[in-house]
Write a protein that binds this DNA or RNA. Sequence first.
DNA 1: TCGTCGTGAGAAAGCGGTTTCTCATGGAGG
DNA 2: CCTCCATGAGAAACCGCTTTCTCACGACGA
Lengths: 342, 342
Amino acid sequence: MRERRGAVTIADVAARAGVSQASVSRVLNGKRSVDPVIVRSVQSAIAALGYAPSVAARSLVHGRNHTVAMVVPDLENPLFQGILKGLSRAAAGDGYRVLVADTAERIEEEEATAIEARHRCDALVLCAPRMPEAQLRRLVARVAPVVVVNRQLPGAEVPIVGVDYGRGIRDLVEHLTKLGHRRLAYVSGPEASASNAERRRGVEEAAAADPDVHIEVLPGGSRLDDGYDAARSVLDARERGATAVIAFNDLVALGLMTRLRELGVDVPAELAVAGFDDVPMARFATPRLTSMSVPRDELGAQVWGRLRTLIAGGPVEHTVLYRPRLEVRESTAAVVAKGGDA
Amino acid sequence: MRERRGAVTIADVAARAGVSQASVSRVLNGKRSVDPVIVRSVQSAIAALGYAPSVAARSLVHGRNHTVAMVVPDLENPLFQGILKGLSRAAAGDGYRVLVADTAERIEEEEATAIEARHRCDALVLCAPRMPEAQLRRLVARVAPVVVVNRQLPGAEVPIVGVDYGRGIRDLVEHLTKLGHRRLAYVSGPEASASNAERRRGVEEAAAADPDVHIEVLPGGSRLDDGYDAARSVLDARERGATAVIAFNDLVALGLMTRLRELGVDVPAELAVAGFDDVPMARFATPRLTSMSVPRDELGAQVWGRLRTLIAGGPVEHTVLYRPRLEVRESTAAVVAKGGDA
DNA sequence: TCGTCGTGAGAAAGCGGTTTCTCATGGAGG
DNA sequence: CCTCCATGAGAAACCGCTTTCTCACGACGA
């Protein structure tokens, strides 16, 4: 430890420029009080030596290292990938980098991971945290500055960025009822998912708003396989009168459509199918999938905007919920009267 | 700066435990020379105060902060996402976190981004760097310890982890020739992509190995849209005798198949289609897509293994190239003789 | 008893940069 | 000429932790 580690330090620059370290520091940090001759001499020495200040030393003095930690339940999830992309690009514009911590859906590790990651960084992003609400409230108080994604925390002094899934579902139901559908099915997402709970609330609200509309909730999941496997119970619901299906997300919808096709069910002629999230493949499925579009990258950029404000000592900015946009495609069409009903 | 910043420091722990800071440090770092009474007293103080050592201070002393930077051309790419997932999970097992830098395909910024990111971290991962080879050689010498993904650097003292795309293509061609296909088309990837260059080399080698096999190269890209748009030139190639198509990757193949279906071309009866990467959707397409499977998460874990060795002062480990595994599905079948040729 | 060796623990220096305080110089005004 | 004020720059302390060096004490052997 007592040996110099080969890197160029501020002492080397000061020696080469013939000034004190304090002067080098002042030049580095743009202080106005430095004689221009010294400024040029220091800059010349910096360039000649290829000097870059130690992040650790600066961090020790400033108490900040210009990193932000992002904790996610699973990096496989397209939403989190999009948020990471948007966040990392936006933060880079302010000299920040994103440090990633993936909890692999181990809920019991989520809190410790968040605390550890935050300890390394200036701020934290919690993506769709799975832990119980009381625990989450205590955590956000502890790890500020923090932004939470896709998890409501009424009354908590923390910015929330998310998608208004309830609203999206209601809009989707409206699209389908305008096409004449009155009996629908909703293929549910994972039980532990807060965004699925919101979708289900949207389902309930849509059904409550129109006494003619009935929406049956079916078990499902979040992946292609889950949708594929849900086809059986979807067809049962169809026997009970359902003419349209809303899937938790596009992957579920795409898997479902594959199985329906294998089973000889014509989409949308015999059964309409709609998804959520509008993944790129939705536009290339057969039939093209009607879906609610969510701006993933932009979510990440919004997260950064709020974090930046918090880091700078600003106020807790408003919760922002993106309203999903309806992308009507081929998989939904007007209900066709079943034989004898015409 | 002269005010204490509220965090618990080693001085607080020392005061509470009634020992020196050196003793607290010794306990923290597991030194054997400490009296067990002092160990317990220190541990009790740490727990009571909720103390966690400053990452910056430790980093300053040790010259390491247990982070590794990963530079990618675009976080949208499923391969990089998978590598990030595998790397971040593997590194976490050793107390490391991954810091992400996305260059947004701005090749001119790649080098500076890599240097800056490395400066913040203990090591670097360069994913499919786009810069010219000479520049890349100079860079890897400068930023060691570094692992490069999907980019060959013969003779360079740097571990390479990647996919043997040439071998994958040759295996795919073999699969198709065994089905009786003799005239093939390859829908090319992005011009600047090193992995596309490898695939094209594989195409040339496969054609050179069998004088009966002819492979025509067509322009394409890397996304669903690119595949969709390539259908026209694919059909032209079919007029010239091609009975099977290999696409740069699965997204291109899926987009292509959508357009072929719209144009009334039966896959694989009239034209066989194969992809690369085996994304989840390949198993749910209609027809199910034949593809070369690549273990994305495992690539990330391999990257970590090599980085860890380098960080520990170990040798440059061997380049590892994963051989893609052929996943035969419905989109490829035996060539059907065209009318009149039977 | 005295001297030597080994072990445990505190003091102080150091990691690399920043900031505060102090000093020196020059200019202006009385 | 002398004093005061403003400005520029270096010295030293500090950020929080680690490590080295030194001291003290105890035990053992001569």
